[in-house]
Design a protein around this nucleic acid. Structure first.
Length: 587
RNA sequence: GGUGAUGUAGUUCAAUGGUAGAAUGGAGGAUUGUCUAUCCUUCGGUUGCGGGUUCGAGUCCCGUCAUCACCGCCA
């Protein structure tokens, strides 16, 4: 037997017991005549005591242990004379009688402590050592808890967990596919799923009613801090349901996860907002509703007053930063510079200080008198001490830029508070999105998304503006400005699906070649259905109040899609290439 | 595909164009109640790599590689 207890188990009530513990040597405090050693496992730390007067040989061996040696000890639990209230096992220690070194360890390249001295790169290369650290383990354990709670909730709701294939077929829609060459079918390739989308719809045709899966998805696109080439979704689909029932089900799941894994309860229903509203009020389809600073459109009070910059644009829009009138010239200049960075790309930024005496000081005093500025303040609800920030431009660009500024100020003013969770359903997404490059429409969600009932008739009018205005039964769950999940009611009618493919510029042949299996299935009595998928990595990260999804993935990849630990991807043998019928081309 | 930042001891960082240094870690020693123990001694460097400018380059210039962040991209 390697252990009778873990390193986090022992308390005062165990005093006097003979125990066996196994763990890693964390720290050594050597006083010559007496040596303390903390051994660690994932459950905690326990202090061992070695005394020269009791056993000189054993104590000397203990003094020679190196960091991260794996040891097994047998000893007696006793009460400490100097207790340590900072650790759960701090009231007791083990008077060691026997010690076995189960394995030695090389000196680790960074310290295995809560606050490590190692940088990201090194920690990723030695991820198995990084994973010994408490904060990282806590993240992985939390992720496990959320996964288990998800299964609990959904299975209680009657959902069936079904595995779908990982080697599937490449389709040109959406993200770039990861591709796998087939040895038995030379010259042909599988693709890894971007999501199990079509399979879950086929499961609905199959009559499996309520499906879910915690599943890996793969997208071969450039990465970010919050984006991995392989990531995990809680993927769900239901048949014979309306959008309302889907939202309620997964609002229930979200509440259950927060309650069981975080002890947080939400009051009432999650707010809902249409896509149009979200863009108008926040300039984003994933608004962070933890703080205000809503957009106020100022066209009627700011245009046609002789200020050319405003007169020539589609939209003049502003936000009011509470209490920010005290910003210095330097801070304000920094804000202007910030929005002018290439990443934001704004031409400029107009600001208006609302002074305590009710007067206004702005960068556009030459064009707008006090009365005009007051009308802005009235419109925006600005109070003395506030700072109004105004941007102008093409509608989409101005909103996007002001959204960035709003988030920047939210951070700067400390308005995103720890432990504050603000969920929100964004509904009524557009069905289609115009792609400037290819000059055609794309499905905004995916090509199986159902248009809203009222819009079905308008679908084939052919008029560009009408097409842009088509709305879908598509929805996103947003928490704290992060897109946690999204889904839609699907098209279950073959004729409507064909019409949708027409809109998207697919020929009949293309649609048949790529999605023939699904269209075929729809001819055999497909039930009305819909679903959604949560980004599991992101959900877990947000629930923990953290930023980086990499910290919640046991073995993540870096910016370049490399696994730094196993050093993948890597070249393969010529033999393997031959077998697959592949030739490499020199660049 | 693009923009920017960074790259110096095992690690985290410092060093006006002029002797590469600190902390931490490691090794050795002292030390009987610590818990980031303490104290003493000591080891530790291709300044990412390749060019160039200069009497002299960690520092300036060019190229390249790597890491990170962002834009494009991610139905």
């Amino acid at each position: 037997m390697y252990r009778t207890h873990t390193c986090g188990d022992l308390r005062l009530e165990n005093v006097g017991q003979e125990v066996i513990l196994s763990g890693w040597m964390q720290t050594k405090r050597d006083f010559g005549g007496m040596t303390f050693i903390d051994i660690r496992d994932r459950y905690g730390l326990t202090q061992l005591v070695f005394d020269m007067e009791d056993d000189q040989d054993l104590c000397s061996r203990a003094r020679k242990l190196g960091r991260e040696f794996v040891v097994q000890i047998k000893g007696t639990v006793r009460e400490r004379s100097n207790k340590n209230p900072n650790m759960p096992t701090g009231n007791v220690e083990i008077e060691v009688g026997e010690m076995t070194i189960l394995n030695k360890s090389k000196l680790p390249p960074f310290t295995i402590e809560d606050e490590t001295d190692g940088g990201d790169e090194l920690r990723m290369t030695y991820r198995y050592l990084d994973l010994r650290r408490k904060p990282v383990q806590n993240n992985i354990i939390f992720r496990s808890n959320v996964a288990i709670a998800t299964r609990e909730y959904l299975s209680k709701e009657g959902f069936i967990e079904v595995e779908t294939p990982v080697l599937i077929k490449s389709t040109p829609e959406g993200a770039r596919d990861f591709v796998v060459p087939s040895r038995m079918n030379k010259g042909q390739f599988y693709a890894l799923p971007q999501s199990p989308q079509t399979f879950k719809q086929l499961l609905m045709v199959a009559g499996l009613d309520k499906y879910f899966q915690i599943v890996k998805c793969f997208r071969d696109e450039d990465l970010r801090a919050d984006r991995q080439p392989e990531f995990t979704q809680i993927d769900c689909e239901m048949a014979f349901v309306t959008q309302e029932e889907i939202l309620n089900t997964f609002e229930g799941l979200t509440k259950y996860l927060f309650k069981t894994c975080k002890g947080i309860e939400f009051n009432g229903d999650f707010p809902r907002m249409t896509y149009d509203e979200a863009l108008r009020l926040y300039g984003s389809d994933k608004p962070d509703t933890r703080f205000g600073m809503l957009f106020h459109e100022l066209n009627d009070v700011a245009k046609n007053k002789g200020f050319k910059v405003f007169d020539s644009v589609e939209l003049v829009v502003g936000i009011c930063a509470p209490g920010a009138a005290s910003y210095t010239r330097k801070q304000l200049d920094a804000l202007v510079k910030w929005v002018q960075r290439p990443q934001i790309g704004a031409k400029g930024l107009v600001y208006v200080k609302c002074n305590q005496d009710g007067t206004f000081k702005s960068t556009v005093d030459k064009f707008f008198d006090q009365e005009a500025l007051k009308s802005w303040a009235d419109k925006m609800g600005a109070k003395p001490g506030d700072l109004m920030l105004v941007m102008a431009g093409e509608v989409d660009r101005a909103r996007k830029q002001l959204n960035e500024l709003r988030l920047h100020l939210g951070r700067e003013l400390g308005l995103m508070k720890e432990g504050d969770f603000k969920p929100l359903w964004v509904v009524d997404f557009p069905l289609l999105e115009w792609d400037e490059d290819t000059e055609r429409f794309h499905a905004m969600h995916h090509p199986f998304t159902s248009p809203k009932k009222n819009d079905i008739e308008r679908m084939l009018s052919g008029d560009h503006e009408t097409m842009k205005a088509l709305r879908a039964d598509a929805y996103d769950l947003v928490i704290n400005g992060s897109e946690i999940g999204g889904g839609s009611i699907r098209i279950h009618d073959r004729a409507l699906q064909s019409r949708n493919f027409d809109l998207l510029g697919f020929t009949k042949e293309e649609a048949e070649a790529q999605f023939g299996f699904l269209l075929g299935a729809f001819e055999y009595g497909a039930p009305p259905h819909g679903g959604l998928a949560f980004g599991f990595d992101r959900l877990v990260t947000i629930m923990s109040g953290q930023e980086s999804i990499r910290d919640f993935i046991a073995f993540p990849k870096n910016n370049q899609g490399r696994d730094m630990m196993i050093d993948a991807p890597s070249p393969v043998d010529q033999e393997q290439l031959d077998e697959l019928g592949l030739d490499l081309v020199e660049e």
